[in-house]
Amino acid sequence: MENKKSVLTLISLIVLGGSVVGSLFVGVLVYFLLSSSGVEGALVKAVYSTVIIQIAFLIPVFMVRMLIDKYIVAKIKEVTKALQEVSTGNLDYQVRIDGDDELAQLAESFERMRISMKTIMDKLEEGEI
């Protein structure tokens, strides 16, 4: 099986890259402000502020990533698994996704299609069609 990157991983990398650039920008601004004001240890304070900003940003990003994985990506993986099973002829594989969102509606539509296909295949095997 191919090693594919998850969309969630790519989004996380983009957000992480943006946070690094943003915190470095803030660190540079802090350094220039402190050094132009004649504050001792401006570089050290700027580095500390950069690290603190980065850590403060990473915590909510990680939490949002976990929520996206739980509520969106897991549902997509379940529908994908069902598609793979049915495409190989396993018409008994059921997909069940709870919720009222678009992914649950997609799973419900897929389940109706699977049941219709199974009914047609059963009728063909029994010679009714």
Rank of each mutant, 00 (worst) to 15 (best):
residue 1 M to I: 04
residue 1 M to Y: 10
residue 4 K to T: 07
residue 4 K to S: 06
residue 6 S to E: 00
residue 6 S to I: 01
residue 7 V to D: 02
residue 8 L to C: 02
residue 10 L to F: 06
residue 10 L to A: 05
residue 10 L to T: 01
residue 10 L to W: 07
residue 12 S to G: 05
residue 13 L to R: 04
residue 14 I to N: 01
residue 14 I to T: 08
residue 14 I to M: 06
residue 15 V to F: 00
residue 15 V to I: 05
residue 16 L to V: 05
residue 17 G to F: 01
residue 18 G to Y: 00
residue 18 G to M: 01
residue 19 S to C: 14
residue 19 S to W: 03
residue 20 V to F: 04
residue 20 V to L: 15
residue 20 V to I: 15
residue 21 V to E: 06
residue 24 L to H: 01
residue 25 F to T: 14
residue 26 V to N: 09
residue 26 V to G: 02
residue 26 V to F: 09
residue 27 G to M: 02
residue 29 L to M: 11
residue 30 V to G: 00
residue 31 Y to W: 10
residue 31 Y to Q: 08
residue 32 F to Y: 13
residue 34 L to E: 04
residue 34 L to A: 07
residue 34 L to F: 07
residue 35 S to Y: 04
residue 35 S to L: 03
residue 36 S to K: 10
residue 37 S to M: 15
residue 40 E to M: 11
residue 40 E to Q: 14
residue 42 A to M: 06
residue 43 L to F: 15
residue 44 V to C: 07
residue 44 V to W: 12
residue 44 V to G: 10
residue 45 K to I: 09
residue 45 K to W: 06
residue 46 A to W: 10
residue 47 V to T: 13
residue 48 Y to G: 13
residue 48 Y to I: 15
residue 51 V to N: 07
residue 51 V to D: 05
residue 54 Q to W: 12
residue 54 Q to M: 15
residue 54 Q to V: 11
residue 55 I to Q: 08
residue 57 F to C: 14
residue 57 F to W: 12
residue 59 I to A: 13
residue 59 I to M: 09
residue 63 M to T: 10
residue 64 V to Y: 11
residue 65 R to G: 12
residue 66 M to E: 15
residue 67 L to Y: 13
residue 69 D to W: 04
residue 69 D to C: 03
residue 71 Y to D: 08
residue 71 Y to S: 05
residue 72 I to A: 07
residue 73 V to N: 01
residue 74 A to W: 10
residue 75 K to W: 00
residue 75 K to G: 01
residue 75 K to A: 03
residue 79 V to Q: 04
residue 81 K to F: 12
residue 81 K to R: 14
residue 83 L to D: 04
residue 83 L to G: 09
residue 84 Q to Y: 11
residue 84 Q to M: 11
residue 85 E to P: 04
residue 85 E to V: 05
residue 86 V to Y: 06
residue 86 V to N: 14
residue 86 V to W: 11
residue 86 V to R: 08
residue 87 S to Q: 15
residue 90 N to F: 00
residue 90 N to W: 00
residue 90 N to D: 15
residue 91 L to G: 02
residue 92 D to H: 08
residue 92 D to Y: 10
residue 93 Y to T: 07
residue 93 Y to E: 05
residue 95 V to L: 02
residue 95 V to Y: 05
residue 96 R to I: 11
residue 97 I to K: 00
residue 98 D to H: 11
residue 98 D to I: 08
residue 98 D to T: 12
residue 99 G to P: 04
residue 100 D to L: 08
residue 102 E to V: 12
residue 103 L to W: 04
residue 107 A to Q: 01
residue 108 E to V: 03
residue 109 S to P: 02
residue 110 F to H: 02
residue 110 F to I: 05
residue 111 E to D: 11
residue 111 E to R: 05
residue 111 E to W: 03
residue 112 R to G: 00
residue 112 R to V: 09
residue 112 R to I: 09
residue 112 R to C: 02
residue 112 R to K: 14
residue 113 M to T: 08
residue 113 M to Q: 10
residue 113 M to N: 08
residue 114 R to F: 02
residue 115 I to F: 02
residue 116 S to Q: 11
residue 117 M to E: 06
residue 117 M to D: 03
residue 118 K to N: 03
residue 118 K to S: 04
residue 119 T to H: 07
residue 119 T to N: 07
residue 120 I to W: 05
residue 121 M to S: 13
residue 121 M to G: 02
residue 122 D to A: 02
residue 123 K to T: 06
residue 124 L to D: 08
residue 125 E to L: 07
residue 125 E to A: 12
residue 126 E to M: 09
residue 126 E to D: 09
residue 128 E to I: 14
residue 128 E to L: 15
residue 128 E to T: 12
residue 128 E to H: 08
